[in-house]
Computed example of a mutant assay.
Amino acid sequence: MSKALTIMDLVAKKQKEIQAKKGRARPFKFPIGKTKIRLLPSWRLGDDPQFFHDFGSHYIKNDKGETEAVYVCTEKTFGQDCEICKAIGMGIKSAHDDETIELLKDANSGQQYLMNAIVRGDANNKEPVLIAAGIGIFESICEIIAEYGDITDLKEGVDLTISREGSGRNDTKYTVIPAAKSESVPKEVLGKALNLDEYVSQENESGLHKALTAVGSAAGLLMAPKSSPATAGAGEMGAIEDKSLSKSIAEELKDDAVDADFEEVPEMKEAPIEDDINEDELDELLADLDG
């Protein structure tokens, strides 16, 4: 009986790892110019007011600027201790040169907020899309809610106009304002909203092992995830099997626009943990994911 349970545990762990690496719905990329959207209420339905989900991801690169691993930041996403954050901190403390320190700082996770929305004027404007917003955009949304109330309400809510200027990491700016005119949203649209709880659930043993190994390599240290004897074998097996770069949903969210300079929060430019990869890097990651 115990053998069967052990096998089931192993299979369940491997299924979770596979699910975490699967390509999922990609975040909407705002084009240059004005885009009108409507944020949707909570995917949890009922009276739950939670229309967004915190999210963060670590991008660990080598000294050549190549991405070695991507993994969810459990502190930014779930408010829990993050082994990757701890490993990065240890690496910075033990580093002996500025290059290594900067490399590790760049692996820190920025804060993002995931939301469901529909894009007005789109041919498929009844199909919800994923919005991944940085702190600047999200703060503006919160300010609008403070003034207008529940802008996500299907009948009485408020559409938003998001304007984008620029396309690079350092010259992209956004402004968010209430739209001059808003329309109601059909109830059936909410039933198609992405379950963000499931969407961010991507922790897996092999991915953690890969990320910690990448941090250790960047810092010149040997690091490994904490795991019990019962799970160590499964984690090691996953790490050996995964010869290529492990991809997770985090990669879908590292758009150059998400945490770029925001007009109302210019100090964001100075925060190294908020830096984004550019569009070419994003396209390369997504192409690898699909392949």
Score class of each variant (00 low, 15 high):
D106C: 07
Y113L: 09
A180R: 14
Q111Y: 07
E188D: 15
E198M: 15
A20E: 11
E102N: 15
P31R: 05
E99Q: 13
P186T: 05
G91R: 03
G235I: 12
E284N: 07
T213P: 00
V72F: 06
I162C: 10
G166F: 10
P186K: 09
K34W: 06
L221C: 04
A218T: 03
A133S: 11
E198T: 14
Q15E: 13
P49H: 11
D288W: 05
E281F: 02
F28H: 13
V215A: 03
A69W: 09
P27I: 02
P27V: 10
P225D: 03
G110N: 01
K86F: 11
E279S: 08
I18G: 00
E205A: 10
K93E: 15
G110F: 00
E99M: 04
E281H: 03
A214R: 08
I60T: 12
V200Q: 05
G110S: 02
E263N: 11
D159M: 06
I145F: 01
K210Q: 12
N108V: 02
L154K: 05
E251S: 13
S206W: 06
E251M: 12
C142K: 15
E139H: 02
T161L: 15
S140W: 00
T100R: 14
L130I: 10
E147D: 14
D171P: 07
K254A: 06
S163P: 02
K226W: 10
N195C: 07
T172C: 08
T74E: 12
I144H: 00
L222G: 02
A20H: 07
V176M: 00
N170Q: 13
M1F: 06
K16P: 01
G56Y: 05
L289F: 09
P31V: 05
L245A: 01
Q19G: 10
N170W: 08
L40P: 08
P49Q: 06
I177E: 15
K192F: 07
G233P: 00
S42G: 04
G191N: 12
M1C: 06
M1W: 04
T100A: 04
G149V: 11
